[in-house]
Design a protein around this nucleic acid. Structure first.
Lengths: 151, 151
DNA sequence: ACCATTTTGTTAAGCACTAAACTATCTGGC
DNA sequence: GCCAGATAGTTTAGTGCTTAACAAAATGGT
């Protein structure tokens, strides 16, 4: 078996772990697309919504740096994402009296309004796409993903 | 229970399908990062490797348009991805004598070389990160993902 | 045989993100 | 109390992708 045959068969005969990897990527991409398209259709920037949600989870206000870490983007990106949010009055920027470097970002009434208005629909939409799995299967999947994350 | 409490609890008490959704996104992002970092460390553009693999899967040559569809990017992106591949001599652009619009992209010996040299390592790396799951669990996960994709 | 329509690929402009360099502020060791 | 280093956030330049407008070539109905 020369190298040509080796490569040819190699790209076709995928080991199980790699098969699962590609299946994960594909399945997730489809679901993310559903969610993204929702926000897109409403003219809302999905990543900005995640900021609002994260602020809510932290009790209504938090630092840009923590925000960046939680959401998994760079601090420079957070700067760029916060600008229009502030402009649109969805978040408010305060300053930490103890530390002049820090900005305390808090969600406004308008920000909460946006979440209240759109988040349920978005989540329902995503949940609908998961209906292929029943509750027991969802728990099973959750367990496997948790295990995968832990290693 | 006023709207403030509603939103506050809402962001914390995530329904199971949405929990699973976020777990999927997170787990997949980690795995993709592993693979991406590999190509990055080798100074190779990951998306371009996917093109080479896809050409191999199609028997050594294919059209840019089909490539775009298989890989899941736009045709304009394929144009941009193919340019450096051609420049580096990893693919070759031929023309279809039957249809002057079409370009037939084929992988070169150098392209095959690149795959032979790097693909096994990359796949091993990804597979290692899946070792948290045994074979039975991998089959289980694969089954759930397939079911999820089908609907 | 001709022209409207479709298809293939490229070009141009723009968007979301990153990495690196920078500014401003704070901290700890002396 | 000072200053070297660390930390928070911004700015700038660049990357990878998309959408929209485009050019070239093929197709099909009349």
């Amino acid at each position: 078996m020369d190298s040509v045959d080796t490569l040819e068969s190699y790209v076709h005969e995928l080991p199980l772990p790699n098969q699962v990897f590609f299946a994960l990527v594909e399945a997730t991409a489809r679901l993310v697309e559903v969610s993204d398209k929702y926000w897109q259709s409403k003219g809302i920037h999905g990543a900005r919504v995640r900021i609002l949600v994260e602020i809510m989870k932290s009790g209504g206000s938090m630092l840009p740096s923590v925000l960046a870490q939680r959401i998994g983007v760079t601090k420079s990106n957070i700067t760029l994402l916060l600008q229009p949010l502030e402009q649109d009055g969805l978040v408010l920027r305060g300053s930490d009296p103890q530390d002049g470097r820090k900005s305390i970002i808090s969600i406004t009434a308008a920000g909460r309004e946006l979440l209240l208005h759109h988040l349920p629909d978005n989540r329902t939409l995503v949940a609908e796409r998961m209906q292929a799995l029943d509750e027991q299967e969802l728990h099973q999947l959750m367990g496997l993903l948790t295990k995968l994350k832990r290693r």
